[in-house]
Simulated scan of single mutants.
Amino acid sequence: MRERRARRSLLSPALLTASIALVAGVSVGGSYALWNGGAPISETEVRSGTLTATVAVGDTGSPTATSAAFDPAAFDGMLPGETRTQTLTVGNTGTTAFLVAASLDAASSASADVSWTLAPGSCAAPGGVGVPLGATAANVGGPLAGSTFSSYCLSVTLGPDVPADVAGTTVADFTLLLDANQDRP
Rank of each mutant, 00 (worst) to 15 (best):
G49H: 13
F75Q: 05
E43L: 13
T60A: 13
W35V: 01
G37L: 01
S48K: 12
S42Y: 11
A39T: 15
G38K: 02
E45F: 05
W35K: 00
G77L: 08
P72C: 07
T60P: 01
F75N: 08
P80D: 02
A73V: 14
L34M: 07
A39V: 04
S42E: 12
M78G: 01
P40F: 12
D59Y: 00
E82D: 10
A53F: 04
G77W: 06
L34W: 03
P40S: 13
S42R: 12
D76P: 03
E43V: 08
N36A: 07
F70A: 14
T64S: 15
V46Q: 08
T66W: 04
D71I: 10
M78R: 00
P63N: 09
G58Y: 09
G37K: 00
M78N: 01
S62C: 06
A74R: 15
A65W: 00
P80Y: 02
T64H: 06
L51V: 14
P63H: 05
E45V: 13
A39F: 04
T66V: 15
P40Y: 11
A69R: 12
L51P: 00
G77Y: 06
P80S: 02
A39Y: 02
M78T: 03
A39E: 12
A73C: 06
S62M: 05
T66A: 13
S48T: 15
D59E: 14
V55P: 09
D59P: 03
E45T: 13
E43C: 03
A68P: 08
G37F: 00
V55T: 12
G61Y: 04
G61M: 09
E43R: 11
P40H: 09
D59K: 01
I41Q: 11
P63R: 08
T44I: 09
F75R: 04
P63V: 04
T50P: 02
A65T: 04
F70S: 07
G77K: 02
L34H: 08
N36H: 11
T52M: 07
S48N: 14
G58N: 07
T44Q: 10
E82L: 08
L34I: 03
T66E: 13
W35G: 02
G61R: 02
V46N: 06
T60H: 02
S42F: 11
